[in-house]
Structures are given as C-alpha cells and as structure tokens.
Amino acid sequence: MDKLDLTKADKTYYGAVKTPQLIELGAISYLTCTGRGEPGGEVFSQAVEALYKVGYAIKAICKKEARDFTVAKLEGLWWFDSDLPAASFPRVEWNWKLLIRQPDFVTSGNVEQARSQVVSRLSSAGQVSYEALSEGSCVQMLHIGPYSEEPASIARIHAFMTEQELRQNGLHHEIYLSDSRRTDSSVLKTILRLPVTDVRQNHK
C-alpha cells in the first residue's frame, strides 16, 4: 500500500526557496486549534498534543481503509490585537491558530470518529476543529535559522510585496519543516507565508 506524503506530493505548498515568491493556493483542509498565549507555553503545548493525537487517530482510521498517509507538518497562523509590530507585544498576548493539513480523502466523518476516540482520554481534543482555508495568492519564502531572526525574512517578503504592488490579505502563516526539539536553531527550516492581493486590481 502506497503512503501519501504531502510534503513530497505538493511541491508548490512545501517547496519554498530562500527568496520571496508568489504562489496560488486553492481550498485546503486542516485540523485546527485556536488559542492565545506564549509559543511553547502550556496552552500552546496542549493544543499541539491534541492536534497530533487526533491527526494520528485519523491516520489509523484511513490506514484501515487502505488510504495511509504521513501526518503532515505543524503549521500556525499568527495575529495580534493591534497593528503594532509583534515585538511590541508580550508573548503571552500572541493569538494563534495551529494547523495540521489533511489529505483530500479525509472526511468530516473520519475526523469526528477520531476526535471521539481521543477526547475520552485527552479532553483538549474536544477543541480540535476541521476546516478548509483558501488563502489564494500568497508570497512565501524559506527562513533558515532561529525563530527570533524571522523579522529579517519577513522584511524581505514585504519589500517584494512593495515591488510587486501587493498588500497583505490574510494572517501570517508559518509551516514548521523542522522539529525544534531535535534540530539546532541555526538550521531550523520554516516557511513564512502571507496571503496577498494585487493593489492595482483593487484600484480598477
């Protein structure tokens, strides 16, 4: 039985390079868990655990149906209750929606079955949702290095957007290609992505 690995199968989604590039994305389904608090803190860690427990339960259900897959990388949408830079906010005030992408063949029934299995032993699994996001046009690039150095890469993305007459049209999106628990911070790989819209089209 072949196992689907979305990281290898979808080069547009996971194939960011070290310079900003414009891509187009359609509707994609995810497990999600929304919260507020410090990255790596207790609430954040509980959300990650819940997502992965449900994600692996879905994998087990699908494997029995001869549709095995590799559980996808953790992702996150980030936002703040102001337009001020992120550095202006204490980390405990950061808002996030954590994501784990799901294959197209996963159904809402699969998700509900998996969530019901997990919630009996992990109550936080009840906070896991299943939803589709459609980000459309996006600018993305691969950031290599510590999370603390992301602002320099984000500045490059914004410079590219200015050159191309694009403006942000959605939440800051990160895809964590590396496991920060097992990878030196100097070589962490993170895709940074911003949904955008063409300023010129909006002025027509």
Score class of each variant (00 low, 15 high):
T32V: 09
D179M: 05
R121N: 07
A132Y: 03
Q140P: 03
V119E: 10
S178Q: 06
T70H: 12
G170A: 14
P20N: 06
T162L: 13
S137R: 14
P195H: 12
Q140H: 11
V119Y: 03
D10G: 09
E49W: 00
I144W: 04
E131R: 00
P39Y: 10
Y56K: 07
E42C: 07
D104W: 07
D68S: 12
H143C: 06
L31Y: 05
A16D: 09
F69M: 05
L98Q: 12
S108Q: 14
Q140W: 06
W78F: 11
L122H: 14
E163L: 11
Q102L: 15
S120M: 10
V43A: 14
T70V: 14
S185E: 15
G170Y: 10
A47H: 15
A47K: 12
R200W: 07
L142C: 02
L4D: 01
S82R: 08
K11S: 13
C138P: 10
H172W: 10
G37H: 01
L133A: 04
R115K: 15
L22F: 04
E38F: 06
S186G: 09
P90D: 09
H172E: 11
C33V: 13
Q102K: 11
A47R: 08
R115N: 05
S116K: 11
K204M: 12
P20Y: 08
D5E: 09
L177C: 05
A9E: 02
A16V: 11
L74G: 04
G40K: 10
I28C: 02
S129W: 03
V43R: 06
F160C: 05
G76V: 06
S185H: 14
P146N: 09
G136P: 01
R115T: 04
P90N: 13
S123P: 04
V43Y: 02
L77W: 00
K11G: 02
V196K: 10
I100E: 03
R193D: 08
K3P: 01
P146T: 07
M141E: 05
L51D: 00
L22W: 06
L192S: 05
R101A: 09
A152R: 12
S116I: 02
I154K: 07
R36D: 00
T162A: 14
I28H: 05
I191K: 04
I154M: 07
Y130A: 13
A47I: 01
S134C: 15
N110R: 06
E163S: 15
L99C: 01
T19K: 12
G26P: 00
D68A: 14
A16F: 03
E93L: 08
L171G: 00
P103N: 04
L192I: 15
W96M: 00
L166D: 05
E165V: 11
V106Y: 01
M161S: 07
I154D: 12
E112D: 11
E131P: 03
P20E: 04
I58D: 05
P85V: 04
R156F: 04
D179R: 06
I175F: 00
T19E: 12
S82F: 13
Y147F: 13
R101P: 08
K11Q: 12
V139R: 10
S148C: 09
L177Y: 08
S129D: 08
S88L: 08
V119Q: 09
T70N: 05
V106M: 01
L177Q: 03
S186D: 14
L77F: 13
K204F: 10
F44I: 08
A155R: 15
V111E: 10
